[in-house]
Design a protein around this nucleic acid. Sequence first.
DNA 1: CCAACCACTTGCAAATAACAAGTAACCGCA
DNA 2: TGCGGTTACTTGTTATTTGCAAGTGGTTGG
Lengths: 141, 141
Amino acid sequence: MTNDFKNIENWQGCPVRFGMGIFGDKWTLLVIRDLMFKGKSYYGQFQDSEEGISTNILADRLQKLERNGIIDKARDAENGARYIYRLTPKGLDMMPMMLAMIDWAERYDGQTEVPPAFIKELRRDPAGLAARLRAELEAGT
Amino acid sequence: MTNDFKNIENWQGCPVRFGMGIFGDKWTLLVIRDLMFKGKSYYGQFQDSEEGISTNILADRLQKLERNGIIDKARDAENGARYIYRLTPKGLDMMPMMLAMIDWAERYDGQTEVPPAFIKELRRDPAGLAARLRAELEAGT
DNA sequence: CCAACCACTTGCAAATAACAAGTAACCGCA
DNA sequence: TGCGGTTACTTGTTATTTGCAAGTGGTTGG
């Protein structure tokens, strides 16, 4: 056989399938959201997010993200008892996709919490917003 | 209690959470891919996609997409034994997000199958490509 | 009105996720 | 140097979801 799509590690080729192999579940993009837009970096902070991810699932997703090169993990310089998680360049490159998702969701979620100023800037200059947010994340390293 | 995030129907507010409530699984965006980029419109065509979605999951996802207003379902004019599935405007508005995903995946999937001409056009004029693809889909109605 | 097609539905087994409790590394302080 | 608190998990069990195979019912063409 040529393709074994039963194993998700083999979901390459088609770009949408490739994406689903990496973040095709309920939780992964919520962790990326926390890293990208909420200024979160620690295990405990991800756990504190209001959706209530369970700890074994969080550990599993962080490991998969690290294995896929989306995030990296290092001991925190300020407090050696914890690890700091950060987006890699590959992870940061998901910014335009995340912003496009936000743009879409803001249009259709009647209960959206996206700040009007954010959505205004997003629609006026998406690339500029992406660049600014990315620069801020890279500065905070 | 104010939020019941145990029920996925209540995943509004945050735009990423809103998205995950609708397409936060392995299969949903693959169906949308088939509708958006592969010219597929029928149940059997979705089933024939090489990832091999099982029939009960496909039925469930189509129903959820319809309920969420992403697709609509109608008897096929040419063959009344089957139904035709089409993207609604809300579904078509996911185009920029899907294109951003394709852009990202093409960069990082060493085995990508995205045609070079497509990715070139996508990076030169993403909004233009989105508009063109959307017009083609709406024409084929 | 029957055979074939098409779109599902159902039942059961396997995999994944949710929940609760426990373990281990490290830090600050006595 | 050891002890209590913090942080990040791991483990075991139960609940939910998915995958697989077989079956059902509407529609068409003959």
